[in-house]
Design a protein around this nucleic acid. Structure first.
Lengths: 262, 262
DNA sequence: TCTTTCAAACATCAATCATGTGGGATACGT
DNA sequence: ACGTATCCCACATGATTGATGTTTGAAAGA
């Protein structure tokens, strides 16, 4: 779909300006007003913006995270590389709990077909691992679904059922994503329920790997999950600030950076 | 996709004959050999049959149930009507657990957008209820995902995690499907794990509705789930044998038959 | 070795989707 | 209430995808 780029530009423009007219957006994107309207309808359904007669205003005023569908596209290449590196750290036969989020979704995809037991914490990842992996008979990846209520849009499973599912099991490895990470502030997330799930996942795993884009390093989000010392390894990309990496390393975390180029 | 019909015919022909050549199937379906080969590949991936050089042999020799994708298409109209009737029996605000199986999948679809809390016991139904219902903001249907291991193909969630999820909750209504049902033999299923889940679901609901095609009435499958008296209502279609319906009625079950014609 | 069968590559057709255009309906400002 | 700008509903068009068939070189089995 080539409309993704246009949706992104509309989202950005509206967010930057606060609100914008349909005509402005049509001029900006080069598309017709009708197309812009259809786009706005889509974005309004995703909760990105709110429509009013003549234009739209952004609902993501501040540090709110953009909707899943958009984030999943951004920096896909880097996420894939990070995911491949994480998958390489996981041995056959292991049991792994994989967090929600777009980076971890790629990790789930990278584990598809591997001889491992996986419990993904988001519906997106569940779908990525269920069935369509091909050979229905010779399926080697064992899939475990946790209970919970899916958070709208994210598909992230949360709540007491998720907690109970995690507490009933012990994993070799937990792969967690984050919204912010640093040696000083530890691992943080935007959503309180998510943070709770992450914490429980970390508690039921022997080894914890954080998978995150470099841009998240040094940032802090609302909900505290765990101190940096709770992590055994961090896999990130080359865009990560060097001082943060050094600080994490000094805190005893194994740091792995995947190149931005092949 | 118009290929469904051809897939069904190939499946039937191979099952009837035990094994068949590619040329025979091409002649039977009127399609080219290449298309038949591609179909066989698909069916082999679904575990329906096994390929060998020159043809394929059926893997569903006995009373095994055909794969989910095929069953989901058969009698869709009747299933939709049954599902609509079941949905009409459920009041707004109720919490409902919906069993796995193709008929119950339609029930889940029928509940989409209703102001109810739903816990579906299969991944297919989870996907039918998650997100793409439109308005991300004004989503009224509360979705609860049970834990468990999805049974390959079926997507039916089973095992201790599923059991634990069910035992942690109490529902107003359980909608269960079945592979066999009768006043004498009770409600039965093919799969032992499924039967266990069904039993647990029934135990944690105040009211139990069985939704099933008429053809299942009077049949018996391997695993016993519950006596007919455990059911409060049965919704089926006009193809159900009258004597079975009468016997169920006599056992104190409310019987509802939806017409085959609108 | 030779024949049959298979699968990758290309061509074709239909279906679907994205987009644009016109016209009638609708909402907002005055 | 009126007028105008805006919106949405159809329908048309171009692009993309998916299913099917044909060809052809490779591979399996006799």
């Amino acid at each position: 779909m080539g409309n993704t780029e246009r949706l992104r530009r509309i989202t950005d423009a509206v967010r930057r300006a606060g609100s914008l007219g349909v005509a402005d957006l049509a001029a900006l994107t080069g598309a017709s007003e009708m197309t812009v309207r259809r786009d706005l309808e889509v974005l309004a359904e995703q909760g990105v913006l709110e429509r009013y007669r003549g234009g739209a205003r952004s609902l993501l005023l501040r540090g709110d995270e953009p909707p899943f569908a958009l984030r999943a596209q951004e920096g896909l290449e880097a996420k894939r590389r990070i995911a491949a590196e994480v998958a390489a750290l996981i041995a056959d036969g292991e049991s792994v709990v994989v967090d929600s989020g777009t980076t971890c979704l790629e990790v789930a995809r990278a584990l598809r077909g591997r001889r491992v037991t996986v419990m993904p914490l988001s519906l997106h990842a569940v779908n990525a691992l269920a069935e369509p992996s091909g050979h229905a008979a010779g399926t080697v990846t064992a899939l475990l679904v946790p209970g919970g209520r899916p958070r709208p849009g994210e598909g992230a499973l949360t709540g007491p059922l998720t907690r109970a599912s995690l507490e009933a099991l012990r994993f070799d490895t937990a792969v967690v994503g984050c919204c912010g990470l640093g040696a000083a502030q530890g691992l943080t997330a935007y959503d309180l329920d998510d943070a709770d799930v992450k914490r429980t996942a970390i508690a039921s795993a022997r080894r914890v790997i954080a998978a995150t884009e470099g841009a998240k390093l040094g940032r802090t989000a609302l909900a505290f999950v765990a101190p940096a010392a709770a992590l055994h390894a961090v896999v990130t990309d080359a865009s990560a600030p060097a001082d943060e990496l050094a600080a994490l390393s000094a805190a005893g975390v194994t740091v792995r950076t995947v190149g931005t180029r092949p």
